[in-house]
Amino acid sequence: MSYWTTAMRIVAKDLLSEARTREMTNAVLFFALLVLVLFSFSFQPASDEERRLASGVLWIAFLFAGVSVLDRSFLRERVNDCLDALRLTPASASALFLGKCVANVLFLLLAAVILVPLFLVFFDLSFRGDVGAWLLVLGLGMWALVVNGTFFAAMTTNVRSRELLLPLLLLPISVPALIAVVEATAVALLGEGAMRVWIQVLIAFDAIYTTLALLLFETVVEGT
C-alpha cells in the first residue's frame, strides 16, 4: 500500500468517525464562536489600528479551535488502545501522522468556512487586500498549527495533564507562524503592505516543522 493511500485511509476514518459523532465540530465551533462574539461586543473596528487588532481576534478564535481539535485528535486512537493497533500494522508511522494532520486541517478549514463570514459580519469588516493570497495564508497558517499540534498531541496522549501540556508546548513554538498569519491577515483587511514576506515565513516554517515531525514521529509513537 502506498504512503499516500495509508494517509488517506486515516483521513477517511477520522472524517467518518467525526461525521457520526460531531463531537469535535461542536466543541470547535462553540469555543471559536464564543471568542468572536465576546470580542465583537468589546470593540468595533473603526480605525486602521483596530482593524489590525481584529486580525488578531480571528486568529485567537482559530487558535482555540485548533487546540480543541488537536487535543481530541489522538483521543480516538487512545480509546481501546487503537494507537497500539496502528503500531502493529506494517503501515509507515509518518504516513499515519500525515493522515492525522490532513484530517485535522480539514476540520479547521471547515471551522474557518463558518467562522470567517461570521467574523466579517460581527466586526463589520471586508477584505480590502488580495483575498486569494489570504486564503493561501489561511491554509499555510492552519498547517503550521496542525503539524506541531498533532505531533505534540501524540506526545502527550497518555499524559494525565495533556489538556494543559498541549497548549504549553504548542503556543511558544508556533509564535513565528502566529505573527506571520496575524500580520498577513491585517494586510488583507487593510489592503496595505506586503503579504509576500509573511507567506515566505509560513512556507519556511511549515517546511521545517513538517520535515522534523515526519522524521521524529515514529520515535514519539514508539515511546507512548
Binding site: T5, T6, R9, K13, V79, D84
Partner: peptide, 22 residues
C-alpha cells in the same frame, strides 16, 4: 483492549485495518 474504533461498525473497522495491512 479491543483495538476497535467505537464509532465504526465491525466491518468498517476490519476494512480500515485491511487497508493498513495492504
Amino acid at each position: 483492549a479491543s483495538f476497535l474504533y467505537e464509532d465504526l461498525s465491525a466491518e468498517e473497522n476490519l476494512r480500515f485495518y485491511a487497508a493498513l495491512y495492504a
